[in-house]
Amino acid sequence: MRRMTFAALAALVPFFAPEAALAGSDDVVVEQPWARASIGVSRPGAAYMTVLNNGEEAVTLTGLSTSLAAMPEIHRSTTTAEGLSSMAPAGEITIAPGESVALEPGGLHAMLMRLQTAMIEGEAFPLTLAFSDGGEVTVDVPILNIAARGPED
C-alpha cells in the first residue's frame, strides 16, 4: 500500500474542504471600482470602490494585490481640526454583516505604491482583495481621467 506524505494530503484539503470555509468572502460584493490616471510611475496611484458584505457574519479585509503596483495597501486619510492632513496604513478592515465600507477620496482608499506601469485613462487593471477567511475577490478597476471625482466621471 502506498502512503501519502503530509504535504500531499495538505494539498488535497482545499478540494475536500466544506464550502462554508470561504463563506465570508463569498458574500462580498465590490461596487463601482475606479481609479484616476497617474502621472507616470514616480508617484503612487489610488483606487476607490465600495465593499459590501451581504453575508450574515463579519468579514475582514486583510490585504490587496495587483500586478500594477509592488506595494498596494489600504490607507486612511485624515484631517485634523487645524486642517492638517495625513495618511497612514489602515491595517485590517472589518465589515459587519449587511454593511459596506467606502474606499473613497479623503478617507479609506487602496493606495498603489511603487507603480510598475503608468495608470492610463481608458485602461483597467485587476485588483484582488484578500480576506481573513482565505478567500479573495478580484475586480477590474477602470482608470478614469486624472481629474475624476467619482466613478461617474
Rank of each mutant, 00 (worst) to 15 (best):
M1Q: 05
R3F: 11
R3Y: 06
R3E: 13
F6C: 03
F6W: 12
V13H: 02
F16K: 01
F16E: 05
A17R: 11
A17P: 02
A20C: 05
A20F: 11
A21I: 15
L22V: 09
L22K: 13
A23C: 03
G24I: 00
G24L: 08
S25L: 07
D27E: 12
D27S: 15
V29Y: 00
E31A: 15
P33L: 06
S38R: 07
I39W: 01
V41R: 13
S42K: 04
S42R: 09
G45A: 09
A47P: 05
T50D: 00
L52Q: 10
G55I: 12
E56Q: 12
L64M: 08
S65H: 14
L68T: 08
A70D: 15
M71Y: 11
I74M: 10
S77N: 08
T78I: 11
T78Y: 02
A81R: 11
A81G: 07
L84E: 12
L84W: 02
S85E: 11
A88Q: 14
P89T: 06
A90H: 08
E92F: 12
I93V: 15
A96Q: 15
E99S: 10
L103T: 05
E104H: 15
E104N: 11
H109W: 08
H109M: 13
L112M: 08
M113N: 14
R114G: 00
R114I: 03
Q116I: 05
Q116K: 08
A118Y: 02
A118V: 10
I120A: 11
I120G: 01
G122T: 10
A124C: 01
P126H: 04
T128F: 07
G134C: 03
G135H: 06
G135M: 03
E136P: 00
E136M: 06
V137C: 02
V137Y: 04
T138K: 03
V139K: 00
P142G: 04
L144V: 01
R149L: 11
G150R: 02
D153V: 09
